[in-house]
Simulated assay, not measured.
Amino acid sequence: MAEETACTSSWHRGRCPAPKAPVASSLALAGVRPAWRQKDQPHTQKQFIFEKPSEVERRVPEAGVIDKPGVYELSKGPTGTSRIHLIPGFIDSEQADWMFEQLLQDIPWGQRTHIRQEVSFEEPRLTSWYGELPYTYSRITMQPNPNWHPVLSMLKERIEEFTGHTFNSLLCNLYRNEKDSVDWHSDNEPSLGKNPVIASLSFGATRTFEMRKKPSPEEDGDYTYVERIRIPLDHGSLLVMEGATQEDWQHRVPKEYHSRDERINLTFRIIYPEPDGVWK
């Protein structure tokens, strides 16, 4: 009561502070909730959320197509430059017709047997070998045959004159239909020497010649993302592979789903004798 009297006395009139409302009441009047009750307020502190790094999408490259005449540099590397030269119509169609028929009839074609992991199977094509030295590939040795067919000797001379390279051996392949093929490989046997030049002449039905670059050591033998090339080889066409092509690339003639007639492929090359005189 004394406090009340003092605040209402005349000389304090106007200076007596207004009584303070309780804090809770004033917050309620203002429509504000106390901090300890503001559970629905957003958290002002940022939270760290782990996100797995997004993997870079790696796409399988589309195969390139080479079907125009010219010299093509495929790749460069420590082993050298890989290069091919495509000459469609190297033998004109009229000459190619009679050469094809004569070689189809006269060459002593044979089918050889492979043994892989103790399982034997026949090559899906016919072959014949010409040259004074034997040739071994895929554990098959083809014996010397120095009796060159006159047409083959003429073709060898014509290719040597055009390319500036000499050849002493020839592997002939006959693809009888679309089911005949040759799997991925490189012509890199020791008897062919370093960076061999291979001249491939085709007669008959057009077949696709495919090439793929050998993967880098980091790829651990995975060919999924390597460069690929498709080359249609038609009647009378010549394809010359040189430089590091056999070291850095593989090639094949795959089976096809559509009907294909016979095709003859002649691959001219140089064979060197084994240093120890033993052919393996």
Rank of each mutant, 00 (worst) to 15 (best):
I270P: 01
S186T: 14
V32G: 00
T208F: 02
Q38F: 00
I115R: 15
T163D: 10
E161K: 15
E262T: 11
D40Q: 01
P254V: 04
E62V: 10
E51A: 09
P61M: 01
V56H: 03
R260Q: 13
R260P: 04
Q45D: 02
D187Y: 07
A35Q: 03
H85F: 08
V278I: 14
R58C: 10
T267L: 03
L192D: 10
L86D: 02
R263S: 02
K68R: 12
K255V: 13
P19M: 02
P144G: 03
L27W: 00
D248A: 07
I198T: 06
D180F: 07
R15N: 11
I87H: 09
M241T: 04
K46S: 06
H85V: 11
Y175S: 05
T8E: 13
Y223R: 05
R139N: 15
E51M: 04
A28E: 01
G204I: 04
D261A: 12
W249A: 00
P215H: 07
W129M: 11
Q47I: 06
F48G: 01
G221V: 03
Q246P: 02
P146G: 05
E242M: 09
N265T: 06
Y257T: 15
I270N: 13
W129V: 13
K46I: 01
V182K: 06
P78F: 03
I198R: 09
P69Y: 10
G243V: 04
H185P: 15
L126V: 07
G204H: 05
E118M: 11
R212M: 14
H251W: 03
L238E: 01
S10Q: 10
F50P: 10
P69G: 05
P78R: 06
P69W: 06
L27A: 00
S216V: 09
P22R: 13
R139D: 15
G277Q: 06
P146A: 11
R212V: 15
W109K: 13
R33P: 00
Y223K: 07
E161N: 14
P19G: 01
P273V: 06
M1R: 13
K76M: 10
F162Y: 15
P42E: 08
L238M: 02
K213L: 13
D220Y: 07
P196G: 09
P17S: 02
T8G: 09
I115H: 12
F100M: 12
F90D: 09
E73Q: 14
A63I: 08
P232M: 09
E132K: 11
R230E: 08
A63H: 04
D106R: 14
